[in-house]
Amino acid sequence: MSANGRHLGTLDRLYVLDGGAAIAPDRSVYTPGKWCGEPVTLSCNAYLMRRNGEWVLWETGIDEALAEEPRGRIIAHGIRGIVARPITAQLADIGLAAADIGTVLLSHAHFDHIGNAGLFERATWYIQRREHEAMFGADYRQHGYTPALYEGLGQAKVELIDGDLDLFGDDSVRVISTPGHTPGHCSLLVRLANTGPVLLSGDVAHDAYNMAHRQVPTMNASRELSLASMERIAAIVDAEGAQLWLNHDTTQSATLAHAPAYFD
């Protein structure tokens, strides 16, 4: 129950899926002036949620076809994507197929978040309007997008979001507008009965150091908006007493139980 007396809903389960790894040749892209020229490996998780028999996916990871390429492939910004195990195999471990996912939520359209869009084109997608416009706009290269990964979404059912969204009307899944990394970037606050609230931050910050020191990657669309979004996320985490899961923090990711284990 919230402070104003409104009942807060919860998810039944939250699964962490391994969406691959991204190897960047120069960590200082994310921490300007520090670790120049040092490579860095970023975890790229996707998150599967069950609520009242419905399946919802947050992010889709790196294109699972890369599982056939042991060394991966450089895709964007000089970053190499590597996939150890396909998303579809991880879903199968839970007894699901891609067609069972009814809703897909997207933080933003970089290759490590939208790489498997083609598997879920029958789902309903929720995308920030500003992100959708940038994805399909003439200046997509400026933001590091790879349209071939999501061209099928042009025919999919897409619900455009303007700002925050309480997806189910009970605050169990709340989309939070956090632009800056890309024009329409967003994050996600979910609630679980035993685990409590968890904030899935997308790329508001790439790891704990970036968040703590308010480091803005040089590739970001807006430094000013990036900093404002970091402050907003920090305030929500504090107000909600939420765990903050930083998608690309490999150290933190290693501490999270991955599917078929789950959080409830």
Rank of each mutant, 00 (worst) to 15 (best):
G5H: 06
G9L: 04
T10N: 14
R13H: 13
R13S: 07
V16W: 07
L17W: 01
P25G: 13
C36G: 13
G37Q: 10
L42F: 15
N45D: 09
A46K: 05
E54C: 01
I62F: 09
I79T: 15
R80W: 07
G81P: 14
I82M: 08
A84R: 11
I87T: 15
A89G: 01
S107D: 09
H110R: 05
D112V: 04
I114Q: 00
N116P: 05
G118R: 14
F120M: 05
R122A: 15
T124Q: 14
T124E: 13
R129F: 03
M135P: 03
D139R: 11
Y145Q: 01
G154W: 01
A156T: 07
E159G: 01
E159S: 08
L160S: 06
D164H: 12
L165E: 02
S172M: 05
V175M: 13
I176R: 00
T178F: 03
T182P: 05
V190E: 02
L192M: 08
A193D: 11
D207H: 12
A208H: 10
Y209T: 10
N210T: 12
V216S: 00
V216L: 04
L225V: 00
E231W: 01
R232W: 06
L246C: 04
N247Y: 12
N247C: 14
T255K: 13
T255W: 08
